[in-house]
Design a protein around this nucleic acid. Structure first.
Lengths: 200, 200
DNA sequence: CGCATCTGAGAACATATTGAGAACACGATG
DNA sequence: CATCGTGTTCTCAATATGTTCTCAGATGCG
């Protein structure tokens, strides 16, 4: 069965939509996606694609389109790690470490925050970067933590206890800023920095 | 099982709530969180998510929702993005931007390299960081590129043409190091920096 | 032209999904 | 125990979405 141009456009749109959103589009969205206004027409295309075996329809259900043939959208989670850079031959593989798995950045209790301000700039954490935080209520000296001060202000700083734990120092990584010291009861740990991402 | 839009919204809300508060939300809070007023409706959504295997209910108990495996069907590729940090109230959601998708770091031609040396330290790229590179043979002025010099040495530097393209400047981001200038034919671009990861 | 095919609009209908809220059971708390 | 808050179940109604249809226009072809 040969697909018409518009059928191919619909199939392509559905594939892209699922790759982006993780769920199938609604007929209304398909229609808009290929520049028409009729849900009925969109349905006709989807039906044709189903007849041709490209996808299946969970009849009646909202977003009830499932792709068949193509890869059932198993997202790639690793990148080839090609070697060290800035030294040596073109790019050499590193023995024993040949890919990086992004899933390492996930844990049950991880979340992300966008960093604002320059207080950790000397630690390579810049304004606009995304910090990956593991939710925890305790931290060790030297950890970089998300700390809530007086239940009011949240900040990302290096953590250190002092005076047998009666005080907590929050140390910025920026030589123009000064360490802040609080009574232990005024500081609540919300999480510990476990990773960092930046997108250019 | 396909989740409806609101079911996904509820799941997302619960995940974010638990990440920030450490305990599960009440049905009333879930309802408010997705903009409805009925506890009964919220319960219907939670029940549906339990049926789909995303969470478990300690029946009857207050706040008796437990998250199960983060995603029963697919590897998780997004992290909840909880808000900006270092300013303002505890952690606020950012309207319209509530998760970060790690698949953004993938492209057809992406690969990763581990950075060695301090030549880009002022750009927040530290020794040991992982740079995500898109394989390309051309670059624009200002891009950070992986450059192969004399088919021998590979380096990560900021790229700039000069003298009508006859020379290429490779500019480090480190005030202790100097810009290197090469004849255009001696430099071959291997890729352009599109992202950066660090794991603590 | 007459005909077939592809296309788009939109009406009409069935049902999936949603929201409100009442009523009741039971856990939490003093 | 007594009270309140919370979870649970239920019905009713409204809205959104999928489905099927008819009508109409455009295009290509014998």
């Amino acid at each position: 069965m040969i697909l018409t141009d518009n059928q191919r456009a619909v199939l392509n749109f559905i594939q892209r939509y699922i790759a982006t959103h993780g769920v199938a589009p609604k007929l209304q969205e398909i229609a808009e996606g290929i520049g028409i206004r009729s849900r009925g027409v969109a349905h006709r295309y989807v039906q044709a694609l189903a007849d041709a075996g490209y996808l299946a329809i969970d009849s009646g259900k909202h977003r009830g389109i499932r792709l068949l043939r193509e890869n059932p959208h198993q997202p790639q989670t690793t990148l080839p790690l090609l070697g060290k850079i800035a030294a040596g031959k073109p790019i050499e593989a590193i023995p024993g470490e040949d890919e990086i798995n992004l899933l390492d950045f996930f844990g049950k209790n991880n979340f992300a925050v966008r960093v604002q301000g320059d207080s950790m700039i000397d630690a390579g954490i810049f304004d606009g970067d995304i910090a990956v935080i593991e939710f925890r209520e305790t931290a060790n000296d030297g950890d970089i933590v998300v700390a809530l001060i007086d239940e009011e202000e949240t900040t990302l700083k290096r953590f250190k206890r002092s005076s047998q734990g009666r005080f907590i120092e929050l140390i910025p990584a920026n030589k123009d800023m000064e360490t802040m010291v609080y009574g232990a009861h005024r500081v609540r740990i919300q999480g510990v920095l476990v990773g960092q991402l930046r997108k250019y």
